[in-house]
């Protein structure tokens, strides 16, 4: 796992990839039409053990230190997928820029299933 690092007069601030994933997960869940953000197999196991659960959001950094996020989603039946995915991308970008000051290159949405809301 990478950590986003920024430096100020008092020291360094590191933001773990899990934090970015958590913000993205919460921001995605806020959108009407999103049933839930998919959990990874690892997080499922952790949930069984009553531990902290993480969504299966992938946070990747390229050579230019730009971040790409992939969000697996389950959409509620009856909602348009392109509009919902667009809203998720916008909300996640805004939330991350507001909370972490990190510029995101791409936010990829992966719709995995449709369920009744």
């Amino acid at each position: 796992m990478h950590k986003e690092e920024s430096r100020n007069d008092l020291g360094t601030i590191r933001i773990h990839d899990n934090v970015i994933a958590s913000i993205a997960s919460i921001a995605a869940s806020e959108i009407e039409g999103v049933k839930k953000v998919e959990k990874s197999f690892k997080s499922g196991l952790l949930e069984l053990l009553d531990k902290k659960s993480l969504a299966a959001i992938k946070v990747e950094k390229d050579k230019n230190q730009e971040i790409t996020i992939s969000i697996p989603l389950i959409i509620k039946y009856g909602f348009g997928i392109p509009e919902t995915a667009n809203k998720v991308q916008e909300n996640v970008r805004q939330a991350l820029e507001k909370m972490t000051n990190i510029t995101i290159k791409d936010i990829n949405v992966n719709v995995q299933a449709i369920e009744r809301g």
Binding site: Y77, A85, D106, N108, V109, I114
Partner: peptide, 21 residues
Amino acid sequence: FATSSGEVTIALSAVEDLIRR
């Protein structure tokens, strides 16, 4: 399909869910 903020992929199983309903 691509959007201004990135890419959206839809699993074909999700489309099958939709049709089943």
